[in-house]
Amino acid sequence: MDEPFGALDEITRENLNLELLRLWRETGKTVIFVTHSIPEAVFLSTRIVVMTPRPGKIEAIIPVDLPQPRSFETRELPEFFRLATEVREALRRGHGYEVAE
Rank of each mutant, 00 (worst) to 15 (best):
M1L: 15
P4G: 12
P4V: 13
G6E: 10
G6D: 00
A7W: 07
A7S: 13
L8M: 07
E10I: 15
R13D: 07
E14S: 14
L16M: 15
L18G: 14
L20D: 11
W24V: 00
E26A: 14
E26S: 13
E26N: 14
G28A: 04
K29S: 11
T30E: 03
V31N: 02
V31M: 10
H36N: 03
H36R: 02
H36F: 07
S37L: 02
P39S: 03
F43L: 15
F43E: 06
L44D: 12
T46W: 10
T46I: 05
T46D: 15
R47W: 05
R47A: 07
R47K: 14
I48E: 01
V49H: 02
M51I: 04
T52E: 01
P53N: 10
R54V: 02
K57P: 09
K57H: 15
E59M: 07
E59S: 06
I62G: 08
P63N: 13
V64I: 12
V64A: 11
D65A: 03
L66G: 13
Q68Y: 14
Q68N: 13
P69N: 06
P69S: 09
F72T: 11
F72I: 03
E73Y: 05
E73I: 04
E76A: 03
P78S: 12
E79C: 03
E79Q: 10
F81M: 08
L83H: 03
E89G: 04
A90M: 01
R92D: 02
R92Y: 06
R93E: 00
G94I: 06
H95K: 07
E98I: 08
V99R: 08
A100C: 00
